[in-house]
Amino acid sequence: MEIKISPVNEGEWMESDVSAMGTDDAVRPEIKDALFQIDSLSFWYRESQALHDISMDIPSRQITAYIGPSGCGKSTLLRCFNRLNDLIDEVRIEGDIRFEGASILDPSVEVNSLRKRIGMVFQKSNPFPKSIYENVAYGCRIHGIRRKRDLDEIVERGLRGAALWDEVKDRLDESALGLSGGQQQRLCIARALSVEPDVILLDEPCSALDPVATAKIEELMQELKKRYTLIIVTHNMQQASRVSDFTAFLYHGRLIEYAETKTLFIRPRKKQTEDYITGRFG
């Protein structure tokens, strides 16, 4: 199957093509307690549109996964949740995202407190060039916690939460850059946990890890789900089906199908979804 992507403003022919791709007739589940409500979100890097009119609700205390081929806009969408795209020059955003009912795209939103509540773990692990201890304590330090005793506790809690404590408890003062790739990624999770967020965004957290480290992080996510809302981007269909409760399939910046993970993987309603999860393209 071949899908043609053209600029938006090309008239009649385009219209039908867009609807043929199913922007508006995207399949959506009923979400009862939605934490995020995305409302016709479109996003542009300069002139090129990366997200097309996406609407979906994201449930609280569940794991929601985004899947889709490379370049389809998963990271872009994820970075809208904590407004990390603000850092990029000449982007434009339309539509809205509501977090607990309030818009987060509003210019009056305190971005720093928003980001404190919505943590993020990046595709490529990015520990600070500091000691392991300082990496985890960093977030709380900037939010004004100074007491050594409090910080010690936070560091331990964060590292335990990320299942890293036993491996590093004797070397907290060593450089974080001396850890293995998997340990670094878990350190980044510990860092995200340290500020007690409500949501954690994970952008392909396992893409650079081996199966053992991946399994550890997946296990960890099941644990974290009890207290946090997780949104994960992944390339790995097995991973999505293993860990997530809901899965959304993005394709060329459009939401194609969004459903409970079981449903999506067993009985996809859209042809494109089926093709993608069965590996016929991607």
């Binding site: 980001r115 943590g119 490529k124 977030g139 860092r191 500020v195």
Partner: peptide, 15 residues
């Protein structure tokens, strides 16, 4: 200094 490092800090709510 890699961009990822800066984003890591900003994503924690640092200015």
């Amino acid at each position: 200094v890699p961009r990822g490092t800066r984003e890591g800090s900003l994503a924690l709510g640092a200015t």
